[in-house]
Amino acid sequence: MISFVGRVEKDVEPPHLSGEELFHVVSEYGDIVFGLQSGKQKFPGFGLTHN
């Protein structure tokens, strides 16, 4: 069981990415084929580094 009592938060705030930085990250994932019949398309790292 996870306990939160007495836990001290030591991590800092995650970085604020600008629009260009976000676009740069997202553009590395590659293109998908649009359409309801093209099925689910997942790139490597789904759920770990991207969603």
Binding site: P14, L22, T49, H50
Partner: peptide
């Protein structure tokens, strides 16, 4: 990873 802005962070 439900937040599109913070992604994996």
């Amino acid at each position: 990873l439900a937040f599109p802005y913070y992604m994996e962070n």
